[in-house]
Design a protein around this nucleic acid. Structure first.
Lengths: 260, 260
DNA sequence: TCAAAAGTGTTAAGTTTACACCCATGC
DNA sequence: GCATGGGTGTAAACTTAACACTTTTGA
């Protein structure tokens, strides 16, 4: 962009303030085999060499943070042109000491994407890009279970906890759960999303009634059915609907003393 | 974050990337006379000279964005040490062209505060600071009604809409409404908060039942009562409780096609 | 006495919960 | 057959919504 220095009125000289680096960090979630997984990269250099970290990188001079998030996701993990990728801003982390090297303000994003079943990776060349590979700055990129992660680099533990909490909360009052599902999915798979993110078990009859009673949450694909888990009755298939929010919301089973 | 090895190999050279300015913008709301009001400053210089804008300013090298938000609020508007000030991060705005002079990434905050009744401004020297006065870069600071604001400077219209939407949504499932109330308030005043932010009318008997049935939302002040509006039965007084979230939520009257 | 605002009561409608039971499939 | 997962039914408990009514104040 290169702003014209001459046109900057007083008090707006670039050298009048300390320059900040602005970066993006990505908390990328998927659900694989009923387990919530996070996409992480192994750091190749100090600080925190060898530690797992969130993918991310610098915002370039002529792009927005969201554009940078999409670009970094593609560069560092090979996840590009993913159909159904959901990306949304989480919050910005700006503690002065969050990077020991210099002042870095980071805009964190949460991304959700459907799992690519192992079979379709071999079948469909497009879906093959869902298998992340190292690239760009990252030593290697890999899906790891959200539960039981060791300490991550920088303040990435906290970012990940914030992202998880936000996703869990948004499942209650938005149609976000479908972002974890492939284009065609069963109600059992949708329920699995809720159960995995919330860490609870839901009543199947009540769950399906609730989902089907919410206009625009899912729409049936007439005649289509798929066998899940190898056994049992084939399940009817649904597509994501056009609604964005759930009214009334689908609340988590109530805990007693509930944190925010 | 994870800075780029390719861009800044060893040690993160500060000149390897274009410097960004990082600022904070504040959407400060209060409710005065059943009207939602926003604290704005009149710009004294180009661009947008004479236009209304959100208070805000640069994040300094050794402070977090939140610290900067508190400092700017005090400097530009005189609102410092306000008891009951609620401040929370909204989101970050980073479009490359959002400031015509240079690249500015802005972390926006939402602040809520109780109205200082005109009488108590004269009585209590502490509350007098609630009357904003210009200072710092701002030409002057003033409360203006949220509805019917002309176009603001920069992308501040959008920030304000986002902030309003967020506050409205958080009233549904958190105890945020008490942040608009003085330390002691009546249920009628609390209801007024909901009605003003949502732009709806609520049923009084049902509202009070809902509030009183939510543990930790409000707690009664035994024996205390206050006359409101000059006439009518004196209303019992309440304090904000210790709960942060509402279970079940207090949902807005349902509209048909609801936006997110 | 009246208007205004607080506060209580009641009932019908709707929602949620818990659980019993049937259906279709692979092994 | 039988285990497994999909799908339907139902009744009790609870929540919400609508509105009638009483109380306490200032004018």
């Amino acid at each position: 962009m290169t702003p014209a220095a001459g046109t900057a009125p007083e008090g707006y000289d670039k050298r009048a303030f300390e320059p900040f680096a602005v970066t993006v960090d990505l908390a990328v979630f998927t659900i694989r085999g009923a387990v919530l997984q996070v996409l992480l990269i192994e750091r190749g250099q100090e600080p925190y060499a060898g530690r797992w970290a969130l993918p991310g990188g610098f915002v370039l001079p002529d792009e927005s943070a969201e554009t940078a998030a999409r670009r970094e996701l593609a560069e560092e993990t090979g996840l590009s042109d993913v159909p159904g990728l959901h990306l949304e801003q989480l919050r910005t982390y700006s503690e002065p000491d969050r990077d020991p090297r210099m002042r870095v303000v980071s805009v964190a994003y949460t991304a959700l994407l459907p799992d690519a079943p192992p079979d379709s990776v071999r079948m469909d060349p497009h879906l093959a890009s869902l298998e992340p590979h190292g690239g760009g700055d990252a030593a290697r990129a890999q899906w790891l279970p959200y539960d039981g992660l060791g300490p991550l680099a920088f303040d990435h533990d906290r970012i990940l906890v914030d992202a998880h909490e936000r996703v869990g909360a948004k499942l209650e009052y938005t149609c976000l759960a479908t972002a974890f599902c492939p284009p065609e999915f069963t109600l059992g798979e949708l329920q699995q999303v809720y159960e995995t993110v919330w860490g609870t078990v839901l009543d199947r009859p009540n769950f399906r009634r609730k989902v089907l009673a919410t206009p625009g949450f899912v729409e049936p694909i007439p005649g289509a059915a798929r066998l899940t888990g190898g056994r049992g009755k084939p399940a009817a298939l649904y597509r994501a609907g056009t609604a964005a929010t759930l009214h009334p919301p689908l609340l988590r089973p109530s805990r007693e003393g509930r944190p925010v």
